[in-house]
């Protein structure tokens, strides 16, 4: 028996046990479900969903399938996820730099923000934002008009959209019956979720940014200043580009957390992936299938985020130092 085999054998054994246990569980589950007369399989995805969705980026009616409804939910999750990551990065960068400011007030405000936001549960923060938008704004008929077409009410903020039907014109929102029609509406649920996620995640990103800046040798700043660069130029041209290599890897975790945290939207009624899955699960009763599908999708989103940033990170790595 070679040494190689001796090392390999225990590993193969463990793998076999894990796979075997997994197979047993799956088999036993299917067996029990069949015995209890519970339908299994993914055929439900083609059935008519027969429920309406409040906010959708892709065309959908209640006559479409459960599969399509799931896509609507995924699109909403991606919308919040992508916008959230971009905005949280910008805010986190500002707060992180402010945290190291030589100005006492700015430095301490940033520190207070980071400590307060990081230590209050996100769900609670979402409720606060939601209540704020919902309760402080007037009903639609007394909506505040900020600019022509921009109405703020407890139904959300309306925005005119360009339209190309029958020649270019602006699709201006207007009051029609109970609600506003035309244009786009940013609902209190979407706004609360996006703002809540951005503010929460930015607090974590700010600390990563601070660690990144502190990780760049002080000599770099001193050298830059000695060459006649202004402090701001030293920060943006010399320190931050080097800090990026330190910031990027931990940033991946925060992006993934933001995307996963978006599932808290079920509590405030934004129809993202988790909310749509809940409704599907209840209407069809296919709990195991629906939950598995959701797990796979979230796993996929996390892996894609990770892959994209790792690729970018590899590009940034110092040549010759990259492993």
């Amino acid at each position: 028996m070679t040494a190689k085999l001796r090392i390999l054998l225990p590993q193969l054994l463990v793998l076999a046990i894990v796979v075997g246990l997994g197979a047993y569980l799956i088999h036993n589950t299917l067996d029990n479900l069949a015995r209890q007369g519970v339908a299994t399989g993914f055929a439900y995805l083609d059935r008519e969903a027969a429920f309406e969705i409040g906010e959708k980026l892709i065309p959908y009616t209640s006559a479409d399938s459960y599969g399509r409804a799931l896509l609507v939910g995924l699109a909403n999750t991606l919308e919040v996820g992508v916008l959230g990551c971009i905005l949280a990065t910008i805010l986190g960068l500002i707060v992180g730099v402010a945290r190291m400011s030589r100005n006492w007030l700015i430095r301490h405000i940033a520190a207070l923000y980071i400590q307060a936001i990081r230590n209050v549960p996100l769900l609670l923060q979402l409720f606060v934002w939601w209540d704020l938008f919902r309760v402080s704004a007037p009903p639609p008929r007394q909506a505040w008009q900020i600019m022509p077409g921009f109405f703020l009410s407890n139904r959300g903020l309306t925005i005119p959209l360009p339209s190309f039907e029958g020649g270019f014109h602006w699709d201006i929102p207007h009051l029609a019956g109970f609600n506003f029609a035309g244009g786009h509406i940013v609902t209190p649920e979407f706004a609360a979720l996006l703002i809540g996620l951005v503010i929460y995640t930015a607090a974590f990103i700010a600390e990563i940014v601070r660690a990144g800046i502190e990780g760049v040798s002080k000599g770099q700043t001193e050298a830059a200043l000695a060459l006649g660069l202004k402090p701001r130029q030293a920060l943006f041209l010399i320190v931050l580009p080097q800090a990026r290599r330190i910031i990027l890897p931990p940033l991946i975790t925060d992006y993934q957390a933001l995307i996963k945290n978006s599932s808290l939207a079920v509590a405030i009624g934004f129809p993202e992936l988790m909310a749509i899955t809940n409704t599907t699960l209840n209407n069809t009763g296919q709990a195991i299938e629906a939950i598995s599908l959701m797990m796979i999708i979230y796993l996929g989103l996390s892996l894609i985020t990770s892959a994209l940033l790792n690729w970018y990170n590899a590009r940034l790595a110092l040549k010759g130092m990259a492993r």
Binding site: F51, E52, I53, G54, N179, A267, I268, G269, A275, T279
Partner: peptide, 12 residues
């Protein structure tokens, strides 16, 4: 037509 606002907990 209508717009549903679907929330998980009855209180909310």
């Amino acid at each position: 037509t209508f717009k549903p606002l679907v929330i998980e907990r009855l209180d909310e």
